[in-house]
Lab assay of single mutants.
Amino acid sequence: SEEELEEFAKEVLRRGITIIVNGIRITEVEIFVKVLREILEKR
């Protein structure tokens, strides 16, 4: 749901943790923004 997305976004921003994806360091915020864009483009 959109509320869950908002909560996830807030949690990500609070933690600001960097994770490893395919050997490249990407912040969770960047991943969230990318996923959010993909979701919005599909609408």
Rank of each mutant, 00 (worst) to 15 (best):
V12Q: 05
E7R: 13
E3T: 13
E30K: 10
T18S: 10
A9D: 01
E41A: 14
I19Q: 00
V35A: 05
I26F: 03
I26E: 03
T27Y: 13
T18K: 13
K34Y: 03
E2K: 12
V29I: 10
G23M: 06
I20Y: 11
A9I: 15
E2G: 09
L13W: 09
K10Y: 09
V12D: 00
G16R: 00
L40F: 12
V21F: 14
V35Q: 02
A9H: 03
E7A: 15
K10H: 06
V21N: 02
E7F: 08
L13H: 02
L5G: 02
V12S: 03
V29D: 02
E41V: 06
E3K: 14
L5I: 05
L36Y: 02
G16K: 02
E28I: 05
L5N: 01
V29N: 00
K34L: 07
R37H: 04
E38K: 06
E4A: 13
L36M: 06
E4N: 10
G23A: 11
I19V: 13
L13Q: 02
I39L: 14
E28S: 15
V33Y: 04
R15G: 10
E11A: 09
V33W: 07
L13P: 01
L40E: 03
I19W: 04
I20G: 01
E3P: 07
K10C: 07
R25K: 11
I20C: 12
I31L: 12
N22Q: 07
V35E: 01
I17Q: 11
L36F: 05
E2N: 12
V12P: 00
G23S: 04
L5W: 08
E4S: 11
V12H: 03
R37Q: 09
R43S: 08
E7S: 09
T27I: 05
E38C: 10
R43C: 15
R25M: 10
A9W: 14
L5D: 03
F8W: 15
I24Y: 07
L13N: 03
V21L: 13
R25P: 14
V35K: 04
R37P: 00
V35G: 01
A9Q: 03
G16P: 08
I31E: 15
V33I: 14
L5E: 01
L5C: 13
A9T: 02
E6A: 13
L5V: 04
I39E: 04
R43D: 07
K34V: 05
E4L: 13
E30R: 05
R15C: 09
E6T: 14
N22T: 06
G23P: 03
E7T: 09
V33M: 11
I19E: 00
I39S: 03
R15V: 06
R15P: 06
E6L: 15
E41K: 05
A9L: 12
I19R: 00
E28C: 06
R37T: 07
E2L: 15
I24A: 03
E2S: 13
I24W: 10
K42V: 07
E30S: 14
E4C: 09
N22G: 09
I19D: 00
R15M: 08
L13D: 01
